[in-house]
Computed example of a mutant assay.
Amino acid sequence: MSSHSDILIVGAGPAGLSFAAELAGSGLSVTLIERSPLAVLQNPPYDGREIALTHLSREIMQRLGMWQLIPEDEIYPLRDAKVLNGHSDYQLHFPQPTEARGEPADCLGYLVSNHNIRKAAYGVVSQLDNITILTDTAVKEVKTSDDEAQVVLENGDILTARLLLAADSRFSQTRRQLGISSDMHDYSRTMFVGRMKHTLSNQHTAYECFHYGRTIALLPLEEYITNTVITVDADKTDTIKALSNEELAAMVKAQLKGRLGDMEVVSTFHNYPLVGMLAQRFYSKRSALIGDAAVGMHPVTAHGFNLGLSSADTLAKLVLEAEKNGQDIGSAKLLERYNSKHMLHAHPMYHGTNMLLKLFTNETAPAKLLRGLVLRASNNFPPLKKLITKQLTG
């Protein structure tokens, strides 16, 4: 069997679904191809990850109708953020802003569970007449020509389109088949994530604690419940996995010096190997990369989904403009414009994050000294602090 759409998207994760939602009412036909079952898209399971959303991301999600589908009591304000280094109590503080994107603001951003974002994105797209979602469907091969993009499914069906998008994770096989190389960086670390209850208020303040030997990030949800992110060297993974909930809570309490009081695990904990990825370019013939297929960020800056949503928004606007003007939505000129625009955001963020990690996970004596100096310099140089705050708010 063969069928034709205007656009094919491999991967119905948040980026792929967000791009499809952008095309509501456009008249463009879109087919999403997803390996997961329909039930997983409809009700994604909790996976431990809380996503820090910027004000810009909130604006985009509101415009697409996604924000409105997230339960109000599961959108948590992130008031301010602090960074600690080693054994020192000195803090780099990013205070509560008075404005963001030219509007009054009372928080740096918002924390929303990954599964709620995915569910909301599917909720919007599932109601659109111009969108077809193929679930339980695997891709065997993709190829492109001057005239069209083609996807061969494992069941033998052939799908064609004017434009093909890869949105199938940082390990994208679609990207590989399109001949786009990538810079893959294995951080040799594992991240453990889940929720903890505590006896002292988190004040809706996020903490990034670069302790020696491991890193702990605290993302405030309810006043006495915090998403706890523990990052350790890969060779310590099994040691953390072997801990009981009580032992894990005691370890975190000790490492935080009792900052949040007594700790208690109140959710399942999940672990992920940390691998970063930056594609050499974000397009090929009649094809483009969005989301994690374009850039897979280390979670330390909490900007992965914001960057993925931005890629979908940037490309969708170019496609809609081209369609409105009767132009080719898969032209090299359009895709080159997308590539240039997204590179301006992605490159500095990806390489800047890696530089930050290289410094704050280096435990040689000179690096420890430099780490402390960087925090103090950042705290006492208002232009730099303002620039970083702008990045945090979007």
Rank of each mutant, 00 (worst) to 15 (best):
L357M: 12
L38M: 13
F192A: 02
E208D: 14
R176S: 15
E247T: 11
V295F: 07
H303T: 06
P44R: 01
P220W: 02
K197Y: 10
N130M: 09
S36W: 07
V300E: 01
Y350Q: 08
N325K: 14
V30G: 10
D292H: 06
E74L: 10
P37Y: 04
R286K: 12
V295S: 00
A161K: 08
N116L: 15
A206I: 01
I51L: 06
S287E: 06
D106E: 13
A302R: 00
R162A: 11
M1N: 11
Q91Y: 02
V300L: 07
Q91T: 12
A249K: 09
D146V: 13
W67I: 09
L375Q: 03
I70P: 02
Y90E: 13
N202Q: 03
V300N: 00
Y76F: 15
H87L: 13
Q96L: 05
T190V: 15
T190W: 05
Q91I: 05
T268N: 12
L392K: 00
L178T: 01
E223L: 09
R35H: 09
V125E: 02
P273Y: 07
N325S: 14
A332S: 13
Q280L: 04
L17N: 09
I7K: 00
Q177H: 12
D157M: 06
L165V: 02
V193N: 01
L165Q: 10
D129P: 10
L108T: 03
S26Q: 07
G109R: 00
A166V: 08
A316D: 03
I133E: 05
L309W: 04
G304V: 03
R35E: 13
G213M: 04
E363A: 08
N339T: 04
S284G: 15
V193E: 10
D129E: 15
H115T: 01
F171M: 11
G326F: 06
N202P: 04
M184C: 10
F192Q: 01
F360P: 06
I51H: 01
L164S: 11
T144V: 14
D238H: 14
R176G: 10
R286T: 14
V10Y: 05
D313I: 05
N245F: 07
D80Q: 13
D238S: 14
A346Y: 02
R376F: 10
G213K: 06
L375I: 10
G261C: 07
D157W: 06
Y212M: 05
C107S: 15
A15L: 07
A120W: 07
E59C: 05
E74Y: 09
L392N: 01
H198C: 08
T353H: 09
V142D: 00
E323W: 11
S244F: 10
S188I: 05
H4G: 01
A293C: 05
T239M: 12
D89E: 12
A81H: 01
D313F: 04
G123Q: 09
P45W: 07
L32Q: 06
A250M: 04
G304C: 00
Q327W: 04
S340Q: 14
I180D: 10
F19Y: 12
G296W: 02
Y90K: 11
D233A: 14
E154S: 11
T205C: 08
G156C: 08
Y283S: 12
R170C: 05
E22N: 15
V152P: 00
S188G: 05
V139L: 09
A120I: 11
R286C: 11
M1P: 14
P382K: 04
Q327I: 02
L128T: 12
T144M: 03
